[in-house]
Design a protein around this nucleic acid. Structure first.
Lengths: 341, 341
DNA sequence: TTGTAGGCGTTATCAA
DNA sequence: TTGATAACGCCTACAA
């Protein structure tokens, strides 16, 4: 029982392929009677349209890709869920491509887009394929490069982007740490920031915002650590801090909840108290919020909303609707928890 | 500058399409001179083969799918990495499909396989699409259903499967808890198992193995909790246990490292000691091992090896090499940590 | 070495 | 309402 195609159905029903196609696709121009005959034949013989042929004829695969730099970050899980929810019954499929922050891998996945294997792609920040993107959009001359960026900004080209005002995030964190304890005056105890991948645009912005605000407030005694990405690294970094820094810092700003978990554990292990000994400001969604006690004060970003909006933009693009706005910037806000005074 | 195809190249080079195709694919029958002319034209005009057309002609997409029940479990990350490493330079692409343990979603992704959108699929346990699988393999009559199962067994059909002897896992855990403290004799303090999704084949086997061994050793005083999946649920389940169970249990067997983390935290919070007050046996890879202190005693499973082997089997299948063995069962082992006496 | 022609499975156009 | 027929872009005999 080989796989049956429209030609087979046509032969069986004694009609032409074009009629079969019309019947199958619910298009007008077929009598109710023939349509039913064809449909039941299709059902009976378990007909499945060949997506490649459809794609070739319609120039469409109905597949979308979600490119992620890694799959371990809780915030990426949030993005995945939000995107999948939007795509769910849009008639498109969404698959996940894990670039592992590797430029080659990212390029390979983008090639699939170029080769018409995907109709469009959502590219999440940290994916690191700047040059490839440029090349791609150049080739197609801003025409049908159906890509939407999340948490990423590539200056050279005009792709719809959805992102948070990251600089403002850094500023908010600094503000929270500096003002909450009225510490701005003396500045004897430093502030510490644990930042992530140092080449990420997002992280760069956060660092700059943090430093910027500190300096504006005359608080020049701060220290920034980069490439602290895992729980374990957060744990270790704290040990390093209490060893190297004197006086001990008054507060920590972390850009990842994973490392925040490590930090909190290290603090507890060391016998210190939060927020009495150290204040802590975390970042992002509350995905891990209830994993960490006491509850973190967070620089909150509307990740789900961003991801959902980006997905909708992409759906629009592949249906040839131009995006409303090219760059949409979302505002972060502070959500006070129990780790600041 | 529209997208250029072989016909265009042929016109530009003043040759036939077939010559272009041969040149591009490095096949014999083209003079070195024409080949170079064609290749440089292709380069110059940025020619990209249309994958759908190729697929249609060759009946191949070179895309493989990895179906996962969720993306949050650390063990799934391990699987993803191992699979991607094997596929990496095989000439195939691998994309991840997140079924969220939803039968409809799983079915939709498998449809892509059926519709020739993918050449093959790796299906990880917990994905829950039993009926769909049966239907699929029935349709194709065990012919070219290029699917390989990981941590899953579907009795009705003969698909290559790679899995651990889960029943043995449960037995090992019970053995570790019962013998390590010589507790088998009295059995006054019960043993507790925190199990995951209750419909998972894997979890069912673990539960049965655990119960089986306990009974064999005359240890009938044990209690099994199901659907404990997250860190938080592990935390809460412990609270429930110390409230409901008297006498307090002597040991815990957990099938997820995530919940183990929650349990350990709850134990600490409650002021208890491990292994003095409770012994704990966890499960699986050591991915989170260094997140949990003291180091867990684990029922160890060779997940990377399984995933890699399964991926290789799939690569074989799509190249029409029949699998060596249909069902490959891997043995678990105990790795002693500091949470047992 | 090269070109011609047919096919892969669908969709779409135009006559009938 | 239907049926030929020509795309879609590529591959592959077979013929020249």
């Amino acid at each position: 029982m080989m796989t049956v195609n429209q030609k087979d159905l046509a032969r069986m029903a004694g009609v032409a392929v074009s009629t079969v196609s019309r019947a199958l696709n619910g298009r007008p121009g077929v009598s109710e009677e023939t349509r039913e005959r064809i449909l039941s034949l299709a059902e009976e013989h378990n007909y499945r349209p060949n997506k490649m042929a459809q794609g070739l004829a319609k120039q469409k695969t109905n597949m979308l890709a979600l490119l992620l730099p890694d799959l371990k970050s809780p915030s990426h899980h949030l993005i995945i869920e939000a995107v999948e929810a939007v795509i769910e019954d849009s008639g498109y499929h969404i698959v996940i491509c894990n670039t592992q922050r590797d430029e080659i891998k990212g390029k390979n996945y983008l090639d699939l887009l170029k080769y018409n294997q995907f109709d469009g792609a959502l590219i999440v920040g940290g994916t690191r394929l700047g040059r490839k993107l440029v090349e791609l959009s150049w080739e197609k001359e801003n025409n049908d490069n159906n890509m939407v960026l999340i948490n990423q900004l590539v200056e050279e080209l005009a792709l719809p982007s959805h992102l948070v005002n990251y600089r403002q995030e850094g500023r908010l964190a600094a503000e929270a740490l500096i003002t909450s304890a009225g510490r701005s005056a003396d500045g004897s105890s430093p502030l510490v920031m644990f930042s992530g991948h140092h080449r990420d645009y997002v992280e760069e912005e956060r660092r700059e915002g943090f430093a910027e605000y500190c300096r504006e407030r005359g608080m020049n005694n701060f220290r920034v650590f980069e490439d602290i990405n895992t729980r374990e690294e957060g744990y270790q970094a704290f040990l390093q801090v209490i060893e190297e820094l004197y006086p001990l810092p008054a507060g920590f700003y972390l850009t990842s909840n994973l490392t925040a978990a490590g930090l909190m554990e290290a603090i507890k292990m060391g016998g210190y108290m939060v927020p009495e000994d150290f204040e802590v400001v975390g970042t992002g969604d509350n995905y891990m919020a209830d994993m960490i006690k006491p509850e973190l004060t967070l620089v909150d970003e509307p990740l789900e909303e961003i991801a959902a909006e980006a997905a909708r933009t992409l759906l629009g693009l592949v249906e040839d609707e131009p995006p409303q706005e090219m760059i949409k910037v979302y505002d972060p806000s502070i959500r006070w928890g129990d780790t600041t005074k």
